[in-house]
Design a protein around this nucleic acid. Structure first.
Length: 122
DNA sequence: CAAGTGACGTAGA
DNA sequence: GTCTACGCCACTT
């Protein structure tokens, strides 16, 4: 258990139906700008520990591609199906227009420990 | 402690 | 558009 894990799970649960977020996006909002891989790891290791309402399928990579590998219960095609069910168009190649469906979090999104970090290459 | 692993991201070819 | 190489960071060996 870790604060990072809790934040990731909470943020993913905030993604509304019909929208998607990138792993890196979730990591960013959780306060770990470089933790994209860890988000995937968290979701993988949390499989089965979260309820059926937990929208893990709304997380895709930043190229708009479904690239899950570790799930014991779902295939990439299953994830695509869940997304299509919410109105998101996913090609047979497991690709979607992430810019068109990207989730824009409310500005109220914060966890008391600080504001959302925005990407800056300074 | 060092090396390996992985639902990723980015840059370069 | 594709693929490969490297960086990233929490975790496991």
């Amino acid at each position: 258990m870790s604060a990072f894990r809790d934040r990731v799970l909470q943020i993913v649960s905030l993604i509304p139906p019909g929208r998607v977020a990138a792993y890196g996006q979730v990591a960013l909002y959780a306060g770990f700008p470089r933790g994209a891989r860890n988000v995937g790891w968290i979701l993988h290791s949390s499989e089965g520990l979260v309820g059926p309402d937990f929208p893990w399928w709304r997380v895709v990579n930043n190229r708009g591609r479904i690239t899950i590998k570790g799930s014991l219960f779902f295939s990439p095609h299953d994830q695509a199906d869940l997304l299509r069910r919410e109105g998101i168009l996913v090609s047979e190649d497991l690709k979607l227009d992430i810019e068109a469906f990207r989730w824009r979090p409310p500005s109220t999104l914060s966890f008391g420990s600080g504001p959302i970090r925005t990407p800056s290459k300074n």
